[in-house]
């Protein structure tokens, strides 16, 4: 691992200004993704800003009847929060479908949102990868792409966003609150927060270099029946091949977001509108223009059947 300097900060303003004034600085929260990548030389920060002392570890109610989740709320605590369990069970289910008990005890809300792809070539520093080393090429395009994206990718990168929590947050219309070194704050809807790879797959989100996530907000509860289905190579402790977050109301209307399919949690509001017509109608719209490889074309019928099982109680 490359040598780095380290500081602990006590406020969000200090953290943002440390990011702003220090070249090569990165935030460390739970450390469960960043340290993994630093050990492999994939991330090589010159300076780490430890935000664990910020105190942004509470879940508060908003004036609009929703929740405001501090970035340092651990995944375990978010999943176990009584309000989230009762009013946003989709989020509890998605968080609990990810990683292990030990990891969820450390992993934070902001860190989870920003976890990086699990593309095998991103991890293999001997291989070309435009995300890890811009301009070096993409080994996945001609390599093993079973886990990779079927939609939203580009000629530069077909990596997927690997996480579970954000898929539920996308279905719940969550937004990310941030602060910058100059003190300006903003709220970014999750869909705009994540960028598609285009020609610059190393840029994965909307954050500026000196911008810190402080909270994630959830609008007032939407009710309905909420389920998170994760399909993976083993029953636990594995990333999703395909996951489906569904909110369904008694009149047949609802929302659906998919994980494992694209470089970001994948949801099309026009597809939501087709929900009463069934799984095929939804996936036809959500995945119109999909461009799978031979290795990962199976994900399209798999996503449809996973949704069918939820909507119609069977696998078609």
């Amino acid at each position: 691992m490359k040598s780095f300097s380290y500081e602990r900060v006590a406020t969000a303003a200090e953290a943002a200004s440390a990011l702003g004034r220090t070249k090569g600085a990165k935030i460390i929260a739970g450390g469960t993704n960043l340290l993994d990548l630093m050990k492999l030389g994939i991330e090589a920060p010159d300076h780490l800003v430890d935000v664990n002392g910020l105190g942004l570890d509470k879940i508060e109610e908003t004036a609009e009847g929703g929740l405001r989740i501090g970035t340092l709320v651990r995944n375990t605590d978010m999943a176990a929060d009584a309000r989230i369990r009762a009013d946003y069970p989709l989020l509890t289910r998605a968080v609990l479908a990810g990683a292990s008990g030990q990891l969820r005890n450390k992993a934070t809300t902001g860190g989870n949102l920003l976890q990086r792809t699990r593309c095998p070539y991103f991890y293999d520093t001997a291989m070309p990868c435009n995300k890890r080393k811009p301009g070096s090429g993409c080994a996945a395009l001609s390599g093993a792409s079973r886990q990779l994206a079927v939609i939203g990718g580009s000629e530069a990168c077909i990596a997927t966003y690997p996480g579970d929590m954000a898929v539920a947050m996308r279905a719940l219309d969550a937004a990310v609150e941030t602060v910058r070194a100059d003190g300006t704050t903003r709220s970014i809807p999750l869909d705009q927060f994540y960028h598609l790879p285009g020609t610059s797959p190393d840029v994965e989100n909307d954050l500026a270099a000196d911008e810190l996530i402080t909270h994630v907000t959830l609008p007032a509860p939407v009710g309905g029946e909420q389920t998170y289905t994760k399909i993976r190579d083993r029953a636990s402790y594995a990333f999703a091949l395909v996951s489906v977050a569904v909110i369904r109301h008694s009149d047949g209307s609802g929302r659906v977001a998919f994980g494992g399919m694209a470089p970001k949690p994948w949801r099309a509001e026009e597809a939501d509108a087709a929900m009463a017509k069934g799984a095929e109608a939804v996936t036809e719209i959500a995945f119109a223009g999909a461009n799978p490889t031979e290795d990962n074309a199976f994900k399209l019928p798999l996503a449809q059947r996973a949704l069918a099982k939820i909507l119609h109680g069977k696998g078609e």
């Binding site: 780490l48 008990g101 990891l103 450390k106």
Partner: peptide, 8 residues
Amino acid sequence: RVNSCLSL
């Protein structure tokens, strides 16, 4: 419980 390998 936490994984001590992924913590500084």
